[in-house]
Write a protein that binds this DNA or RNA. Structure first.
Lengths: 73, 73
DNA sequence: TTGTGACTATAAGTCCGTG
DNA sequence: ACACGGACTTATAGTCACA
C-alpha cells in the first residue's frame, strides 16, 4: 500500500460518487445540501482529493440512495 | 443522521473488524503490524471509537483478506 | 455549476505507559 | 492479549472568496 494506491482508492471513490450523483441528476450543491456537507467538500471528494471518513461515506451514500458498499467497491 | 447514528456506524464497523480478525486467529497487534497501523489504534477502532478513513478501511480490509465492502456493510 | 487555494478547528493516528 | 489514558503530531473536516 504505497502513495499511488492511496491516490487511486480516493480517486475511485470520488468517481463512484460523481457517477451516482449524475445518474440521479443532482448538482454538487444539491448533493451537499442533502448530506449536510459543503459544496466544495463534495467537489473535492469527487476529484479524489479527500480521504473521506466512514461517517461521511455513509452520509454521502444515504443521500445518493445507495449502499455504502457500492461506493467503496 | 444524528449522533447516535454516527456512533452505531463506527460500532458496527469495529465489530466487523474484530469478527474477521478473530476468525483469522490474529491478535490486535498482529493486525496492526500487517496494516502498518498502531496497536492502540486498532483497539480503539474495534471498540467503535474511531471514524476510520477510506484508506485505512482498505488497509485493514487487505490485512484481513476481505473486501472493503464486507467491513462497511 | 464547478474548481481551486487558503485557511482554522477538530479528529485521526502515534507513542509512551498502566492495570 | 487487551483496555485505557495522556501527550503529542499530522491529517481530515469543514468553510470561504474568487476564478
Amino acid at each position: 500500500m504505497d502513495e499511488g494506491d492511496e491516490h487511486s482508492i480516493k480517486k475511485v471513490f470520488g468517481e463512484q460518487v460523481r457517477r451516482f450523483r449524475k445518474a440521479k441528476g443532482h448538482s454538487q450543491e444539491d448533493l451537499a445540501d442533502m448530506c449536510g456537507l459543503d459544496r466544495t467538500y463534495i467537489g473535492s471528494v469527487e476529484r479524489g482529493e479527500r480521504n473521506v471518513s466512514l461517517v461521511n461515506i455513509y452520509k454521502i451514500a444515504i443521500a445518493l440512495g445507495v449502499s455504502p458498499k457500492e461506493l467503496v467497491n
